[in-house]
C-alpha cells in the first residue's frame, strides 16, 4: 500500500514538473521544473529497488545535465523570455497538439492492451541475471564493471582524460610565454561566444 502512495506522490511531482517545463515563460524556470521531473523519476526508480539508477539519475541528469542547460541559458541571456505570440514555424503548434495526442493514444493503447501481462513481480528466471537473486544492484553493477567490462571501463578512463586535455587545448589562449606555440599572432582574437546582450537589456 505504501508503495502505491509513494508512486502517486512521485507521479504528481513528475507531471507537475513536465507541464511546468512547457508552460513556464522564463527558461530558467523551465530548467528548474526539469530538475523536479527528473527527481520524481528517481523516486520511481527507488520504488523499484533500482538504487543505483536513482542515484545516477540525480547526479547525472538533475545535477550535471540541467546545470549545463543553465550555463547555456545564462550565456544566451537570462532575462530573454520567449516570445510566445509569434509562431516561428507556421503550423508548428497545431501539429504539436496532434502529434502529442497521437503519442498519448499509442502509449495508453500499449498499456491497456498489455495490462494483463503486467504483474509487478520481479523476474526470477535467468540465473545470475535474474532481478531477484539477493544481490543489490550496486553490488551487481560493481561486479560486472570490474570483471567482464574491466577493459572497456579502463579505456573509458583514457577517453575522458584525453577529452579533457583536448578541450582545454582547443579553448585556451596562451597565457605564459613558455606555453606559446612558435608564432602566436598578436592581433588574433577569438569571436565572442554569444552576441552581447547588454544593450538590449537597457531598452
Amino acid at each position: 500500500m505504501s508503495e502505491v502512495i509513494v508512486f502517486f506522490f512521485a507521479a504528481a511531482i513528475i507531471l507537475v514538473g513536465a507541464v511546468g517545463v512547457v508552460v513556464a515563460r522564463n527558461p530558467v524556470h523551465s530548467a528548474l521544473f526539469l530538475v523536479q521531473t527528473l527527481f520524481g523519476v528517481a523516486i520511481i526508480f527507488l520504488i523499484q529497488d533500482a538504487n543505483f539508477l536513482a542515484a545516477v539519475q540525480i547526479m547525472v541528469y538533475a545535477g550535471a545535465i540541467v546545470i549545463l542547460f543553465l550555463f547555456v541559458i545564462m550565456l544566451l541571456g537570462v532575462d530573454s523570455a520567449e516570445e510566445l505570440d509569434v509562431d516561428p514555424i507556421a503550423g508548428q503548434r497545431p501539429l504539436a497538439v496532434v502529434l502529442g495526442a497521437a503519442l498519448l493514444g499509442v502509449g495508453l493503447t500499449v498499456v491497456l492492451v498489455a495490462a494483463k501481462g503486467i504483474t509487478g513481480a520481479r523476474a526470477t528466471a535467468g540465473g545470475e541475471h535474474a532481478l531477484d537473486n539477493g544481490l543489490s544492484d550496486v553490488e551487481r553493477i560493481g561486479r560486472v564493471l570490474f570483471t567482464e567490462y574491466v577493459f572497456a571501463f579502463e579505456a573509458t578512463a583514457a577517453l575522458l582524460t584525453i577529452a579533457v586535455i583536448g578541450a582545454v587545448v582547443l579553448t585556451r589562449r596562451a597565457a605564459a610565454a613558455d606555453m606559446l606555440p612558435d608564432r602566436e599572432p598578436a592581433s588574433f582574437e577569438l569571436p565572442p561566444l554569444a552576441p552581447a546582450i547588454d544593450e538590449e537589456e537597457e531598452h
Binding site: 579505456a155 577517453l159 583536448g166 587545448v169 582547443l170
Partner: peptide
C-alpha cells in the same frame, strides 16, 4: 558491444579535436 562502442569513441574523440 560495449568494448566496440568505447573503442569507437576512444578513436573518434581525439580525431574530432
Amino acid at each position: 558491444l560495449i568494448s566496440i562502442f568505447v573503442a569507437l569513441e576512444l578513436l573518434s574523440i581525439p580525431a574530432y579535436m
